[in-house]
Computed example of a mutant assay.
Amino acid sequence: MTALDVEVGGARPYRIHIGAGLLDDGALLARPLRGRHALVASDGNVAPLYAAGVVDALRAARPDAQVATCVIPPGEQEKTLARFGEAIDALAALGATRDACVYALGGGVVGDLAGFAAACWMRGIDCVQLPTSLLAMVDSSVGGKTAVDLPQGKNLVGAFHPPRAVVADTATLRTLPARELRAGLAEVVKYGAIAESGFLDWLDAHADALLGGDADALSEAIARSCAHKAAIVERDPFEHGERALLNFGHTFGHAIETAQDYGALNHGEAVAVGMVLAARLSAALGLATDTDTMILRALLQRLGLPTEPPAGLAPDTLLAHMRLDKKAQASGLRFVLWDGPGHARVVADVPEDAVLDVLRGA
């Protein structure tokens, strides 16, 4: 299969490389390395599979480079200031200079945390994203959002720090648990929901191939998703406007994740539920129809994703977490809602009673 590239423009342009076997391409990996120091950051699930190969490939392409590793335990609960501190300590131990590079090898947690460490070390060094989960390939590795979580909510401490490159090796998806593959498909569906209704039709037609791990189908889904995100990020790099549309389903989803202490549902599953709740809220406010919600819900269910919140989460508790959401303003809650498939919008000052009605109805 031919590798696919997606260009991300703007003030700091970079390229997304998509294809099988790219983590073995030392020349590709080393191309963004301007200095002699490289830190490969990963987690306890991914590092045993791929870290040694990445280190070897870098050293083969750049024999003069000093390459170190930093491995954190896996899981969203590890995306903390303490683990961020470990990455900073690793950079200090390496003696990383201003032209050093952090290679974020893993899923969204590693990408966010390692990217944030790169943003902060010496006020900003290079970062290359090496996503190994579908969710990271189509979402968190692209656009330069980096962050860690606090007990009060997700991604409350972070920085915008675009990568120098993204290398998405689709061969790593072969080792991805089926649940994590499905979780990534939730973010893929999001792009159809907010930008291209025809993409939803394509996903429905290729659902079996995607769930079966078909390489060509997955590569096309990744490339189309990245192209949508790249276009939005290029127009709005710091989320002053249109980029907020990428958070469709996330206000509900993040509240669910925080309320359950990042337990029952993973991020993609929570976003799937959140998108259905956002569609229901859109219908309740007269922006879309109940039929639109049913179409979205049916596609998510076909992809093996949950569409209802876990039992036992109190609506008032979820609402309290939404008040801390980064899209909230002093005047009230802001949600990304839709006018139907392919047409999303940011809606300010959404009545809390309407949100509670949707949560109670779920």
Rank of each mutant, 00 (worst) to 15 (best):
W121S: 10
D149K: 06
G44W: 04
L130P: 05
E7M: 12
G263A: 10
Q77A: 15
R98V: 00
A87H: 14
T80H: 12
R280A: 03
G75R: 01
I125P: 04
R182C: 10
A354F: 06
H240W: 13
G274S: 09
V188F: 09
E7D: 14
H267E: 04
A311Q: 05
V355T: 00
W338C: 05
L203Q: 03
S141W: 03
A61D: 02
V55A: 14
D64T: 09
E78W: 13
A57G: 12
A136H: 03
V346F: 11
T258K: 08
A20Y: 10
H250Q: 10
Y262S: 14
T289V: 04
A96I: 02
G124S: 13
D292P: 06
G115R: 09
R235C: 05
T146D: 11
L303Q: 07
G340H: 09
D236E: 14
L39N: 09
A114L: 06
E308A: 12
D99M: 03
L281E: 08
P306E: 02
Y14C: 03
L22D: 04
H250F: 05
G19R: 04
A283D: 00
A100R: 00
A186H: 02
A328Q: 12
L203N: 01
L203E: 06
E7C: 10
H161P: 06
A186Y: 06
A215L: 14
L91G: 02
G19C: 08
Y191G: 02
V67Q: 03
Y103T: 08
